[in-house]
Design a binder for these strands. Structure first.
Length: 433
DNA sequence: TATCCACAGGAAATCAGGGTGT
DNA sequence: ACACCCTGATTTCCTGTGGATA
């Protein structure tokens, strides 16, 4: 047995945990995938979708439509909610609902395969290998055979991701025209998008068949609405007496600041409850919410960085090393290229990347908010990007050190920056020849 | 004021690695 | 064994450009 006080004893930990007060009654109620019995503050949207889809009850195909709104405004939840009610009211002709998250199922081939496999209830279509048109034909046959004369709803969540992928517009076009090739079954497409400007990139033919001119718009929740949502969920998720209105309102207020994102509000409340339980508190307190907020932020950054492709991590490492060893140096894209290729030389089996590719990684890291890069023209010294880290060196080091092969690079002092420096407008740049 | 640097970033091609049916 | 397919990562090729400097 362990004797050292500082060491973690898993036996004691679990025993202690079980003895503590219980907060969670039904944890799933705080998950975003949970569909509650009532959906507060979405009456208008529910009504619109219900009206649009009602004809499926008598076997007619509703016209396709789009739902817009920022993340956490209840788009997916509302569609799922209506789908449950509709299915409950349908008698003979039960509609089918196929959900596709385009963020997960992200290529045209996989969308077709996913739809096919969901309907057939078996993994009939392999993850790759077949020509698309073959799958398309098989899908048509399956729809007529399995769905018969009912309606099949195809819900494409995060549909905006498709519009900037190659082949994305084609697959949407094909899906909107499914009905023309079907004998019995009818399909209806429901697109869910986070981006309001997504229409711009959409094929006009697809847009018109999706009824793009009058989409259903979901507005962000305000703090009071978020509080209502949380209250209802908390009543299901927690034991009575474990939470007070003040804490709920606090979570709601914090999430309202972040674009009224209900998903964030739920995450925050769940995390706060977990912290309270971990700390053997009988109630969730405001300070648990504060802690939860910090932990969530950290978790998200860490998850994102560790989930990056290796070369992207290496680009980030290059920026980290320059910031660490040359704190007064103004980092430009050229520096990142140089240091990145230095790092590649240190790692066996890692090929150098072209500047073009690294430029894309710099953009991706910027988009994620990990770094800040802005284009600057330096006249005779050319046009480049000025890059700064948007997060603390300590935190970045802690995260990067979790990747084995990168951990050993974190104390490497880049050589390419030690050569020649030049001063322009008081800032130190690499010397140009 | 024309020049010219060091890139930015779009588009298309290529490659490797996973698969298919015949 | 073979021709062919799909995907994601990357390369190749290319045109465009802001603004200090000559």
């Amino acid at each position: 047995m362990l004797t050292n006080k500082d060491e973690f004893n898993i036996e004691d930990f679990y025993a202690h945990y079980l003895k503590g007060p219980k907060i969670f009654q039904k944890r799933e109620a705080l998950e975003t995938s949970y569909v509650p019995e009532e959906l507060p503050h979405r009456d208008k949207e529910i009504k619109k979708i219900a009206e649009l889809t009602a004809c499926a009850l008598i076997g007619d195909a509703p016209s396709s439509f789009l739902c817009y709104g920022m993340t956490g405004t209840g788009k997916t939840a509302t569609v799922r909610y209506v789908s449950q009610k509709l299915t409950r009211h349908a008698r003979a002709k039960k509609p089918w609902w196929i959900y596709v998250n385009c963020n997960v199922v992200s290529t045209p081939y996989r969308i077709l395969a996913h739809i096919y496999n969901t309907i057939s209830n078996r993994e009939r279509i392999p993850p790759t290998g077949l020509p698309k048109d073959v799958i398309f034909k098989q899908l048509l046959g399956l729809l007529d055979q399995k769905v018969g004369d009912s309606v099949c709803f195809l819900v494409l969540d995060e549909i905006d991701i498709l519009s900037d992928k190659k082949g994305g517009n084609e697959i949407l076009y094909d899906l909107t025209r499914l009905n023309e090739n079907l004998d019995y079954c009818k399909t209806s497409l429901i697109g869910i998008s986070n981006k309001l400007n997504f229409k711009k990139y959409l094929d006009p033919r697809v847009l018109s068949s999706l009824g793009g001119e009058c989409p259903i718009v979901f507005h962000p929740y305000n703090a009071n609405e978020l509080a209502d949502i949380l209250k209802k969920r908390a009543a299901i998720a927690f034991y009575p007496g474990t939470h007070e209105e003040g804490v709920i309102r606090y979570c709601a207020a914090l999430a309202a600041e972040e674009n009224g994102d209900a998903r964030k509000a739920l995450q925050l409340l769940k995390k706060a409850a977990e912290i309270a339980q971990r700390k053997h508190s009988k109630k969730i307190l405001e300070r648990h919410v504060d802690e939860a907020r910090l932990e969530l932020e950290k978790d998200q950054v860490e998850e994102f960085i560790l989930g990056l492709p290796f070369q992207a991590k290496l680009v980030l490492t290059a920026i980290y090393l320059i910031s660490k060893y040359f704190p007064n140096h103004v980092i430009i894209s050229g520096d990142v290229y140089d240091v990145h290729s230095e790092l590649c030389n240190l790692l066996p089996k890692k090929r150098k990347l072209t500047e073009r590719r690294i430029s894309d990684y710099i953009n991706e890291l910027t988009l994620a908010g990990l770094i800040c890069a802005r284009i600057k023209s330096r006249g005779y010294y050319g046009r480049t990007k000025i890059i700064t880290l948007s997060m603390g060196l300590d935190m970045l080091e802690r995260i990067l050190s979790k990747e084995e092969s990168i951990a050993e690079l974190l104390n490497y002092r880049p050589l390419s920056l030690q050569k020649d420096k030049v001063k322009i407008n008081g800032a130190v740049f690499k010397k140009l020849y």
